[in-house]
Design a protein around this nucleic acid. Structure first.
Lengths: 224, 224
DNA sequence: GGCCTTCTTGACGCGACCTTGACGCGGGCA
DNA sequence: TGCCCGCGTCAAGGTCGCGTCAAGAAGGCC
Protein backbone atom coordinates (compact mmCIF):
# COMPACT_ATOMS: atom_id res chain seq x y z
CA UNK A 1 0.00 0.00 0.00
CA UNK A 2 2.59 2.55 1.06
CA UNK A 3 6.22 2.61 2.10
CA UNK A 4 7.11 3.10 5.74
CA UNK A 5 10.55 3.88 7.14
CA UNK A 6 10.81 2.54 10.69
CA UNK A 7 13.71 3.78 12.81
CA UNK A 8 14.60 2.31 16.21
CA UNK A 9 17.76 1.06 17.90
CA UNK A 10 15.86 -1.67 19.75
CA UNK A 11 16.11 -4.56 17.33
CA UNK A 12 13.34 -6.52 18.96
CA UNK A 13 10.92 -3.64 18.67
CA UNK A 14 12.08 -2.95 15.15
CA UNK A 15 11.31 -6.55 14.23
CA UNK A 16 7.84 -6.28 15.76
CA UNK A 17 7.25 -3.07 13.84
CA UNK A 18 8.34 -4.64 10.60
CA UNK A 19 6.04 -7.62 11.05
CA UNK A 20 3.05 -5.55 12.09
CA UNK A 21 3.45 -2.94 9.37
CA UNK A 22 3.99 -5.56 6.72
CA UNK A 23 0.89 -7.42 7.85
CA UNK A 24 -1.03 -4.16 7.47
CA UNK A 25 -0.02 -4.06 3.82
CA UNK A 26 2.90 -1.63 4.01
CA UNK A 27 6.23 -1.82 2.33
CA UNK A 28 8.76 -1.54 5.17
CA UNK A 29 12.28 -0.11 5.28
CA UNK A 30 14.21 -0.03 8.57
CA UNK A 31 17.14 1.79 10.12
CA UNK A 32 18.83 1.50 13.52
CA UNK A 33 20.45 4.89 13.97
CA UNK A 34 20.04 8.48 12.90
CA UNK A 35 22.55 8.68 10.08
CA UNK A 36 21.38 5.54 8.36
CA UNK A 37 17.80 6.73 8.88
CA UNK A 38 18.49 9.91 6.94
CA UNK A 39 20.31 7.95 4.26
CA UNK A 40 17.50 5.39 4.01
CA UNK A 41 14.91 8.14 3.76
CA UNK A 42 16.81 9.83 0.92
CA UNK A 43 17.28 6.59 -0.96
CA UNK A 44 13.89 4.94 -0.52
CA UNK A 45 11.52 7.90 -0.55
CA UNK A 46 9.09 6.56 2.03
CA UNK A 47 5.53 7.85 2.35
CA UNK A 48 5.69 8.02 6.13
CA UNK A 49 8.37 7.75 8.83
CA UNK A 50 8.12 6.13 12.27
CA UNK A 51 11.00 7.57 14.28
CA UNK A 52 12.33 6.65 17.69
CA UNK A 53 13.75 9.63 19.55
CA UNK A 54 16.34 7.74 21.59
CA UNK A 55 18.93 6.88 18.96
CA UNK A 56 22.58 6.20 19.76
CA UNK A 57 24.27 8.64 17.41
CA UNK A 58 21.93 11.58 16.85
CA UNK A 59 19.28 13.23 18.93
CA UNK A 60 15.78 12.69 17.63
CA UNK A 61 15.21 16.36 16.96
CA UNK A 62 18.38 16.42 14.88
CA UNK A 63 17.03 13.65 12.71
CA UNK A 64 13.79 15.58 12.39
CA UNK A 65 15.71 18.70 11.44
CA UNK A 66 17.59 16.78 8.78
CA UNK A 67 14.42 15.23 7.46
CA UNK A 68 11.96 18.07 7.43
CA UNK A 69 13.52 20.44 4.90
CA UNK A 70 12.89 18.03 2.06
CA UNK A 71 10.59 15.29 3.37
CA UNK A 72 6.95 16.31 3.02
CA UNK A 73 5.23 13.20 4.41
CA UNK A 74 4.06 12.55 7.97
CA UNK A 75 6.52 11.67 10.75
CA UNK A 76 5.31 9.74 13.79
CA UNK A 77 7.67 9.93 16.73
CA UNK A 78 8.14 7.14 19.28
CA UNK A 79 9.70 7.87 22.64
CA UNK A 80 10.09 6.44 26.10
CA UNK A 81 9.93 9.93 27.55
CA UNK A 82 6.43 11.01 28.49
CA UNK A 83 7.32 14.47 29.70
CA UNK A 84 5.21 17.16 28.07
CA UNK A 85 8.23 19.26 27.24
CA UNK A 86 9.71 16.49 25.13
CA UNK A 87 6.44 16.12 23.26
CA UNK A 88 6.16 19.83 22.60
CA UNK A 89 9.74 19.99 21.39
CA UNK A 90 9.33 17.09 19.01
CA UNK A 91 6.00 18.30 17.65
CA UNK A 92 7.34 21.80 17.10
CA UNK A 93 10.43 20.34 15.45
CA UNK A 94 8.20 18.94 12.74
CA UNK A 95 6.75 15.70 14.07
CA UNK A 96 3.10 15.04 13.26
CA UNK A 97 2.36 12.71 16.14
CA UNK A 98 4.04 11.55 19.34
CA UNK A 99 3.50 8.14 20.90
CA UNK A 100 5.07 7.12 24.21
CA UNK A 101 6.48 3.65 24.79
CA UNK A 102 5.19 1.17 25.57
CA UNK A 103 2.43 1.52 23.03
CA UNK A 104 -0.27 -0.62 21.47
CA UNK A 105 0.38 -1.73 17.90
CA UNK A 106 -3.25 -1.30 16.94
CA UNK A 107 -3.16 2.27 18.11
CA UNK A 108 0.02 2.92 16.17
CA UNK A 109 -1.56 1.60 13.01
CA UNK A 110 -4.67 3.68 13.59
CA UNK A 111 -2.57 6.81 14.05
CA UNK A 112 -0.67 6.03 10.87
CA UNK A 113 -3.97 5.61 9.04
CA UNK A 114 -5.13 8.98 10.35
CA UNK A 115 -1.90 10.63 9.23
CA UNK A 116 -1.97 9.10 5.78
CA UNK A 117 -5.65 9.89 5.33
CA UNK A 118 -4.74 13.54 5.66
CA UNK A 119 -1.59 13.27 3.63
CA UNK A 120 -2.80 11.90 0.33
CA UNK A 121 -6.27 13.15 -0.49
CA UNK A 122 -6.52 11.50 -3.91
CA UNK A 123 -4.82 8.17 -4.37
CA UNK A 124 -5.39 7.89 -8.09
CA UNK A 125 -7.99 8.26 -10.76
CA UNK A 126 -8.42 4.99 -12.57
CA UNK A 127 -9.55 6.08 -16.02
CA UNK A 128 -8.70 4.02 -19.08
CA UNK A 129 -8.92 5.69 -22.47
CA UNK A 130 -8.95 4.29 -25.95
CA UNK A 131 -9.51 5.91 -29.28
CA UNK A 132 -13.20 5.08 -29.26
CA UNK A 133 -14.29 4.98 -25.62
CA UNK A 134 -13.23 5.85 -22.07
CA UNK A 135 -13.74 3.73 -18.97
CA UNK A 136 -14.02 5.27 -15.51
CA UNK A 137 -13.51 2.42 -13.09
CA UNK A 138 -14.24 4.50 -9.99
CA UNK A 139 -17.50 5.94 -11.29
CA UNK A 140 -18.36 2.71 -13.07
CA UNK A 141 -19.16 4.51 -16.27
CA UNK A 142 -18.32 4.01 -19.93
CA UNK A 143 -18.45 6.73 -22.58
CA UNK A 144 -18.43 6.02 -26.30
CA UNK A 145 -17.92 9.08 -28.49
CA UNK A 146 -18.88 11.28 -25.58
CA UNK A 147 -22.19 9.56 -24.95
CA UNK A 148 -22.77 7.44 -21.89
CA UNK A 149 -23.37 3.74 -22.54
CA UNK A 150 -25.23 1.79 -19.88
CA UNK A 151 -23.91 -1.64 -18.98
CA UNK A 152 -25.88 -4.25 -17.05
CA UNK A 153 -24.32 -5.62 -13.85
CA UNK A 154 -23.08 -8.76 -15.57
CA UNK A 155 -21.73 -6.82 -18.51
CA UNK A 156 -19.87 -4.46 -16.21
CA UNK A 157 -18.52 -7.30 -14.09
CA UNK A 158 -17.09 -9.00 -17.13
CA UNK A 159 -15.83 -5.82 -18.77
CA UNK A 160 -14.17 -4.38 -15.69
CA UNK A 161 -12.40 -7.66 -15.08
CA UNK A 162 -10.83 -7.34 -18.51
CA UNK A 163 -10.08 -3.63 -18.28
CA UNK A 164 -8.30 -4.15 -14.98
CA UNK A 165 -5.77 -6.31 -16.82
CA UNK A 166 -5.09 -4.24 -19.95
CA UNK A 167 -3.17 -6.12 -22.61
CA UNK A 168 -3.09 -9.28 -20.57
CA UNK A 169 -4.83 -12.54 -21.36
CA UNK A 170 -7.59 -13.39 -18.89
CA UNK A 171 -8.59 -17.05 -18.77
CA UNK A 172 -12.21 -18.05 -19.19
CA UNK A 173 -12.21 -19.93 -15.90
CA UNK A 174 -10.98 -16.80 -14.15
CA UNK A 175 -13.67 -14.66 -15.78
CA UNK A 176 -16.47 -17.09 -15.01
CA UNK A 177 -15.40 -17.42 -11.40
CA UNK A 178 -15.02 -13.68 -10.95
CA UNK A 179 -18.39 -12.76 -12.42
CA UNK A 180 -20.70 -15.73 -11.86
CA UNK A 181 -18.97 -17.62 -9.06
CA UNK A 182 -16.96 -20.82 -8.69
CA UNK A 183 -19.92 -23.04 -9.62
CA UNK A 184 -20.09 -21.69 -13.15
CA UNK A 185 -16.54 -22.44 -14.29
CA UNK A 186 -17.82 -24.63 -17.15
CA UNK A 187 -20.50 -22.33 -18.57
CA UNK A 188 -18.34 -20.88 -21.31
CA UNK A 189 -21.44 -20.05 -23.34
CA UNK A 190 -22.17 -17.25 -20.89
CA UNK A 191 -18.91 -15.66 -21.93
CA UNK A 192 -19.83 -15.89 -25.59
CA UNK A 193 -23.22 -14.27 -25.08
CA UNK A 194 -21.94 -11.39 -22.97
CA UNK A 195 -18.81 -10.74 -24.95
CA UNK A 196 -21.04 -10.36 -27.99
CA UNK A 197 -23.20 -7.83 -26.15
CA UNK A 198 -20.17 -5.88 -24.99
CA UNK A 199 -18.75 -5.76 -28.49
CA UNK A 200 -22.11 -4.63 -29.85
CA UNK A 201 -22.14 -1.78 -27.33
CA UNK A 202 -18.49 -0.74 -27.44
CA UNK A 203 -16.69 -1.87 -30.55
CA UNK A 204 -16.75 0.38 -33.64
CA UNK A 205 -17.08 -2.78 -35.76
CA UNK A 206 -18.51 -5.58 -33.60
CA UNK A 207 -17.85 -8.20 -36.27
CA UNK A 208 -14.12 -7.43 -36.22
CA UNK A 209 -13.33 -6.72 -32.57
CA UNK A 210 -10.44 -4.37 -31.98
CA UNK A 211 -10.41 -4.00 -28.21
CA UNK A 212 -12.09 -7.16 -26.93
CA UNK A 213 -10.14 -9.94 -28.59
CA UNK A 214 -10.76 -13.65 -28.38
CA UNK A 215 -7.91 -16.04 -27.65
CA UNK A 216 -9.37 -19.35 -28.85
CA UNK A 217 -9.34 -22.02 -26.21
CA UNK A 218 -7.79 -19.71 -23.63
CA UNK A 219 -9.81 -16.63 -22.83
CA UNK A 220 -10.14 -12.98 -23.75
CA UNK A 221 -7.90 -9.94 -23.86
CA UNK A 222 -8.52 -6.20 -23.66
CA UNK A 223 -6.08 -4.27 -25.84
CA UNK A 224 -6.25 -0.46 -25.36
CA UNK B 1 -5.00 33.21 14.08
CA UNK B 2 -7.65 30.60 13.56
CA UNK B 3 -11.06 29.61 14.84
CA UNK B 4 -11.31 26.68 17.23
CA UNK B 5 -14.50 24.92 18.26
CA UNK B 6 -14.04 23.40 21.74
CA UNK B 7 -16.62 20.84 22.87
CA UNK B 8 -16.80 19.51 26.44
CA UNK B 9 -19.52 19.03 29.04
CA UNK B 10 -17.13 19.88 31.87
CA UNK B 11 -17.60 23.63 32.21
CA UNK B 12 -14.47 24.09 34.23
CA UNK B 13 -12.34 22.38 31.63
CA UNK B 14 -14.15 24.23 28.90
CA UNK B 15 -13.31 27.50 30.59
CA UNK B 16 -9.66 26.51 30.89
CA UNK B 17 -9.62 25.56 27.22
CA UNK B 18 -11.16 28.84 26.19
CA UNK B 19 -8.63 30.84 28.16
CA UNK B 20 -5.64 28.85 26.96
CA UNK B 21 -6.68 28.81 23.33
CA UNK B 22 -7.50 32.48 23.35
CA UNK B 23 -4.14 33.27 24.91
CA UNK B 24 -2.52 31.34 22.07
CA UNK B 25 -4.21 33.65 19.62
CA UNK B 26 -7.18 31.57 18.58
CA UNK B 27 -10.74 32.62 18.08
CA UNK B 28 -12.75 30.28 20.31
CA UNK B 29 -16.28 28.92 20.00
CA UNK B 30 -17.60 26.46 22.59
CA UNK B 31 -20.35 23.86 22.94
CA UNK B 32 -21.37 21.60 25.80
CA UNK B 33 -23.14 18.75 24.06
CA UNK B 34 -23.13 16.93 20.74
CA UNK B 35 -26.10 18.53 19.04
CA UNK B 36 -25.07 22.08 19.80
CA UNK B 37 -21.54 21.15 18.74
CA UNK B 38 -22.77 20.12 15.30
CA UNK B 39 -24.89 23.23 15.06
CA UNK B 40 -22.03 25.48 16.17
CA UNK B 41 -19.69 23.85 13.68
CA UNK B 42 -22.16 24.43 10.85
CA UNK B 43 -22.73 28.04 11.83
CA UNK B 44 -19.23 29.18 12.69
CA UNK B 45 -17.11 27.15 10.24
CA UNK B 46 -14.16 26.58 12.57
CA UNK B 47 -10.72 25.68 11.29
CA UNK B 48 -10.18 22.98 13.88
CA UNK B 49 -12.34 21.11 16.41
CA UNK B 50 -11.37 19.93 19.90
CA UNK B 51 -13.94 17.31 20.83
CA UNK B 52 -14.58 15.54 24.12
CA UNK B 53 -15.86 12.01 23.60
CA UNK B 54 -17.93 11.78 26.78
CA UNK B 55 -20.85 14.03 25.95
CA UNK B 56 -24.25 13.74 27.62
CA UNK B 57 -26.48 13.47 24.54
CA UNK B 58 -24.50 11.90 21.70
CA UNK B 59 -21.69 9.39 21.53
CA UNK B 60 -18.41 10.97 20.43
CA UNK B 61 -18.24 8.83 17.31
CA UNK B 62 -21.71 10.03 16.35
CA UNK B 63 -20.55 13.61 16.51
CA UNK B 64 -17.56 12.66 14.40
CA UNK B 65 -19.84 10.95 11.90
CA UNK B 66 -21.99 14.04 11.68
CA UNK B 67 -18.97 16.27 11.28
CA UNK B 68 -16.75 14.38 8.89
CA UNK B 69 -18.90 14.33 5.77
CA UNK B 70 -18.56 18.04 5.27
CA UNK B 71 -15.93 19.28 7.73
CA UNK B 72 -12.46 19.04 6.17
CA UNK B 73 -10.36 20.44 9.01
CA UNK B 74 -8.54 18.57 11.78
CA UNK B 75 -10.43 17.11 14.74
CA UNK B 76 -8.57 16.50 18.00
CA UNK B 77 -10.39 14.16 20.35
CA UNK B 78 -10.22 14.39 24.14
CA UNK B 79 -11.23 11.44 26.26
CA UNK B 80 -10.90 10.07 29.77
CA UNK B 81 -10.73 6.56 28.32
CA UNK B 82 -7.19 5.40 27.64
CA UNK B 83 -8.09 2.00 26.20
CA UNK B 84 -6.49 1.35 22.84
CA UNK B 85 -9.75 0.22 21.33
CA UNK B 86 -11.37 3.56 22.06
CA UNK B 87 -8.46 5.33 20.43
CA UNK B 88 -8.56 3.14 17.34
CA UNK B 89 -12.32 3.59 16.99
CA UNK B 90 -12.12 7.36 17.25
CA UNK B 91 -9.19 7.66 14.87
CA UNK B 92 -10.84 5.43 12.30
CA UNK B 93 -14.06 7.40 12.68
CA UNK B 94 -12.22 10.43 11.36
CA UNK B 95 -10.34 11.94 14.30
CA UNK B 96 -6.85 13.23 13.58
CA UNK B 97 -5.46 12.99 17.10
CA UNK B 98 -6.46 11.49 20.44
CA UNK B 99 -5.42 12.91 23.80
CA UNK B 100 -6.31 11.26 27.10
CA UNK B 101 -7.36 13.25 30.12
CA UNK B 102 -5.78 14.59 32.16
CA UNK B 103 -3.53 16.30 29.67
CA UNK B 104 -1.02 19.10 29.58
CA UNK B 105 -2.22 22.30 27.95
CA UNK B 106 1.15 22.91 26.36
CA UNK B 107 1.03 19.52 24.72
CA UNK B 108 -2.50 20.15 23.47
CA UNK B 109 -1.40 23.41 21.88
CA UNK B 110 1.63 21.74 20.32
CA UNK B 111 -0.56 19.02 18.85
CA UNK B 112 -2.95 21.63 17.47
CA UNK B 113 0.00 23.43 15.91
CA UNK B 114 1.15 20.19 14.32
CA UNK B 115 -2.33 19.53 12.95
CA UNK B 116 -2.73 23.02 11.53
CA UNK B 117 0.75 23.05 10.09
CA UNK B 118 -0.29 20.13 7.88
CA UNK B 119 -3.25 22.13 6.73
CA UNK B 120 -6.38 21.01 4.97
CA UNK B 121 -5.53 19.39 1.68
CA UNK B 122 -9.17 18.85 0.81
CA UNK B 123 -10.78 22.06 -0.41
CA UNK B 124 -14.06 20.17 -0.75
CA UNK B 125 -16.98 22.23 -1.89
CA UNK B 126 -19.59 22.32 0.83
CA UNK B 127 -22.16 23.57 -1.68
CA UNK B 128 -23.23 21.65 -4.77
CA UNK B 129 -25.30 23.40 -7.40
CA UNK B 130 -27.38 22.07 -10.24
CA UNK B 131 -29.71 23.78 -12.63
CA UNK B 132 -32.72 23.08 -10.46
CA UNK B 133 -31.50 22.95 -6.88
CA UNK B 134 -28.55 23.69 -4.59
CA UNK B 135 -27.29 21.50 -1.76
CA UNK B 136 -25.49 22.93 1.26
CA UNK B 137 -23.73 20.00 2.90
CA UNK B 138 -22.58 22.06 5.87
CA UNK B 139 -25.96 23.55 6.70
CA UNK B 140 -27.75 20.36 5.70
CA UNK B 141 -30.14 22.29 3.54
CA UNK B 142 -31.55 21.95 0.05
CA UNK B 143 -33.05 24.77 -1.98
CA UNK B 144 -35.24 24.16 -5.01
CA UNK B 145 -35.97 27.24 -7.09
CA UNK B 146 -34.95 29.41 -4.15
CA UNK B 147 -37.36 27.78 -1.71
CA UNK B 148 -36.10 25.58 1.10
CA UNK B 149 -37.14 21.94 0.91
CA UNK B 150 -37.19 20.02 4.18
CA UNK B 151 -35.71 16.52 4.13
CA UNK B 152 -36.24 13.95 6.86
CA UNK B 153 -33.13 12.55 8.56
CA UNK B 154 -33.25 9.38 6.49
CA UNK B 155 -33.81 11.27 3.28
CA UNK B 156 -30.86 13.52 4.03
CA UNK B 157 -28.64 10.62 4.96
CA UNK B 158 -29.34 8.93 1.67
CA UNK B 159 -29.16 12.08 -0.41
CA UNK B 160 -25.94 13.40 1.10
CA UNK B 161 -24.30 10.05 0.57
CA UNK B 162 -25.02 10.37 -3.12
CA UNK B 163 -24.15 14.05 -3.41
CA UNK B 164 -20.79 13.43 -1.77
CA UNK B 165 -19.87 11.21 -4.73
CA UNK B 166 -21.05 13.27 -7.69
CA UNK B 167 -21.09 11.33 -10.93
CA UNK B 168 -19.97 8.16 -9.22
CA UNK B 169 -22.06 5.06 -8.90
CA UNK B 170 -22.86 4.24 -5.28
CA UNK B 171 -23.72 0.61 -4.61
CA UNK B 172 -26.94 -0.25 -2.84
CA UNK B 173 -25.09 -2.16 -0.15
CA UNK B 174 -22.95 0.87 0.54
CA UNK B 175 -25.98 3.13 0.79
CA UNK B 176 -27.89 0.79 3.07
CA UNK B 177 -24.91 0.35 5.35
CA UNK B 178 -24.19 4.07 5.48
CA UNK B 179 -27.75 5.13 6.25
CA UNK B 180 -29.40 2.24 8.08
CA UNK B 181 -26.43 0.21 9.33
CA UNK B 182 -24.72 -3.05 8.44
CA UNK B 183 -27.73 -5.16 9.46
CA UNK B 184 -29.89 -3.70 6.69
CA UNK B 185 -27.72 -4.57 3.71
CA UNK B 186 -30.48 -6.65 2.15
CA UNK B 187 -33.40 -4.25 2.55
CA UNK B 188 -33.25 -2.82 -0.93
CA UNK B 189 -36.91 -1.84 -0.77
CA UNK B 190 -35.94 0.94 1.66
CA UNK B 191 -33.87 2.42 -1.11
CA UNK B 192 -36.76 2.28 -3.54
CA UNK B 193 -39.15 4.01 -1.16
CA UNK B 194 -36.78 6.80 -0.21
CA UNK B 195 -35.38 7.37 -3.66
CA UNK B 196 -38.96 7.87 -4.83
CA UNK B 197 -39.53 10.44 -2.09
CA UNK B 198 -36.32 12.28 -2.91
CA UNK B 199 -37.21 12.41 -6.56
CA UNK B 200 -40.67 13.67 -5.72
CA UNK B 201 -39.13 16.48 -3.69
CA UNK B 202 -36.19 17.40 -5.90
CA UNK B 203 -36.58 16.27 -9.49
CA UNK B 204 -38.31 18.56 -11.95
CA UNK B 205 -39.94 15.47 -13.47
CA UNK B 206 -39.95 12.67 -10.89
CA UNK B 207 -41.08 10.10 -13.44
CA UNK B 208 -37.99 10.76 -15.57
CA UNK B 209 -35.21 11.38 -13.06
CA UNK B 210 -32.42 13.60 -14.27
CA UNK B 211 -30.18 13.89 -11.22
CA UNK B 212 -30.92 10.77 -9.19
CA UNK B 213 -30.43 7.98 -11.67
CA UNK B 214 -30.94 4.29 -11.12
CA UNK B 215 -28.34 1.79 -12.21
CA UNK B 216 -30.38 -1.42 -12.25
CA UNK B 217 -28.94 -4.16 -10.13
CA UNK B 218 -26.05 -2.00 -8.93
CA UNK B 219 -27.03 1.16 -7.18
CA UNK B 220 -27.74 4.84 -7.75
CA UNK B 221 -25.86 7.80 -9.16
CA UNK B 222 -26.11 11.55 -8.63
CA UNK B 223 -25.31 13.41 -11.83
CA UNK B 224 -25.01 17.22 -11.37
C1' DG C 1 -53.95 11.65 25.63
C1' DG C 2 -54.19 13.02 20.79
C1' DC C 3 -52.15 14.68 16.59
C1' DC C 4 -48.52 14.84 13.41
C1' DT C 5 -44.42 13.40 11.06
C1' DT C 6 -41.55 9.73 9.94
C1' DC C 7 -40.26 5.06 9.32
C1' DT C 8 -41.39 0.33 8.21
C1' DT C 9 -43.67 -3.27 5.72
C1' DG C 10 -46.38 -5.54 2.27
C1' DA C 11 -48.51 -6.14 -2.33
C1' DC C 12 -48.68 -5.52 -7.30
C1' DG C 13 -47.56 -4.53 -12.21
C1' DC C 14 -44.20 -3.82 -15.50
C1' DG C 15 -40.02 -3.92 -17.82
C1' DA C 16 -35.31 -5.32 -18.07
C1' DC C 17 -32.05 -8.71 -17.43
C1' DC C 18 -30.33 -13.45 -17.16
C1' DT C 19 -30.59 -17.95 -18.65
C1' DT C 20 -31.06 -21.44 -22.00
C1' DG C 21 -31.33 -23.80 -26.29
C1' DA C 22 -30.69 -24.04 -31.25
C1' DC C 23 -28.17 -23.03 -35.43
C1' DG C 24 -24.33 -21.69 -38.60
C1' DC C 25 -19.58 -21.14 -39.38
C1' DG C 26 -14.64 -22.09 -39.52
C1' DG C 27 -10.39 -24.37 -38.30
C1' DG C 28 -7.88 -28.53 -36.73
C1' DC C 29 -7.31 -33.32 -37.51
C1' DA C 30 -7.62 -38.05 -39.05
C1' DT D 1 -13.11 -35.09 -47.51
C1' DG D 2 -15.76 -35.59 -43.51
C1' DC D 3 -16.02 -34.99 -38.51
C1' DC D 4 -15.82 -32.40 -34.29
C1' DC D 5 -14.99 -28.81 -31.18
C1' DG D 6 -15.11 -23.99 -30.10
C1' DC D 7 -16.94 -19.55 -31.14
C1' DG D 8 -20.53 -16.12 -32.58
C1' DT D 9 -25.42 -15.07 -33.18
C1' DC D 10 -30.24 -15.00 -32.27
C1' DA D 11 -34.58 -15.52 -29.97
C1' DA D 12 -37.72 -16.87 -26.34
C1' DG D 13 -38.96 -17.90 -21.69
C1' DG D 14 -38.81 -17.05 -16.83
C1' DT D 15 -37.05 -14.61 -13.10
C1' DC D 16 -35.71 -10.67 -10.72
C1' DG D 17 -35.42 -5.86 -9.61
C1' DC D 18 -37.57 -1.41 -9.72
C1' DG D 19 -41.27 1.99 -9.06
C1' DT D 20 -45.61 2.91 -6.93
C1' DC D 21 -49.15 3.00 -3.55
C1' DA D 22 -51.05 2.47 0.86
C1' DA D 23 -51.66 1.13 5.48
C1' DG D 24 -49.83 0.14 10.04
C1' DA D 25 -46.22 1.18 13.75
C1' DA D 26 -43.25 4.19 16.29
C1' DG D 27 -41.84 8.38 18.23
C1' DG D 28 -41.95 13.43 19.14
C1' DC D 29 -44.60 17.60 20.39
C1' DC D 30 -48.40 20.15 22.18
Amino acid sequence: MSRVLAVDDDRQLLRALRITLRAAGHDVVTAEDGRSALRAAAENHPDVVVLDLGLPDLDGTEVLAGLRPWFPGPVLVLSARSDSRDKVDALDAGADDYVTKPFDMGELLARLRALQRRGTPEPEEPVVRTEHFTVDLAAQQVRVDGGVVRLTPTEWGLFSELVRAPGRLVGQRHLLQAVWGPAYEKETNYLRVYMAQLRRKLEPDPANPRYLRTEPGMGYRFTP
